[in-house]
């Protein structure tokens, strides 16, 4: 699965798709593949604040529990409620229908800490090779 060229990425395998002041946040294809079948998602609260690099939610596969780290700081303006009933959407379409939250971005300066698609692809490949599974 290709990684969208216009998204920004974290080392911990989240992405953010920026649309004006808004960012749509989810897990990358690498993350969902490493987790395996996702069976539970704990979404953040709409209206809550998230901080860059800090946990905003939890995804659970059959075997593993994993925190999700926010790519940017800001206010949560929407969450993907559909994941409550169909958490496997993250596996099926991580970069699209499997999005987790929408954030009103507080400071675009934080983008400096994120990776572009080329850097992220390299990062994911290296982790895969190092056997992070």
């Amino acid at each position: 699965m290709a990684y969208p060229a216009d998204y920004k990425y974290t080392k911990s395998h989240e992405y953010i798709k920026v649309e004006g002041n808004m960012g749509i946040v989810g897990l990358t294809n690498y993350a969902q593949d490493q987790l395996g079948d996702i069976v539970f998602v704990e979404l953040p609260e709409v209206g809550g604040e998230v901080k860059q690099g800090e946990p905003f939610g939890v995804v659970e596969s059959v075997k593993a529990v994993s925190d999700c780290y926010s790519p940017v700081g800001g206010k949560v303006v929407a969450v993907n409620d559909k994941l409550n009933d169909e958490p496997g959407t993250i596996n099926a379409d991580p970069h699209g229908a499997g999005w987790i939250m929408k954030v009103e971005i507080a400071d675009k300066g934080e983008f400096a800490n994120l990776m572009d698609v080329a850097a992220y692809q390299k990062h994911a490949e290296e982790e895969a090779k190092a056997g992070h599974h």
């Binding site: 395996g36 059959v62 599974h133």
Partner: peptide, 22 residues
């Protein structure tokens, strides 16, 4: 198989996916 270190053994945690295998 997705081979992992299982108590010192190289064994697969999954092949096609845990839910599918189950």
């Amino acid at each position: 198989g997705k081979v992992v270190d299982f108590g010192g053994w190289a064994l697969s945690v999954q092949f096609s996916g845990i839910l599918d295998e189950h």
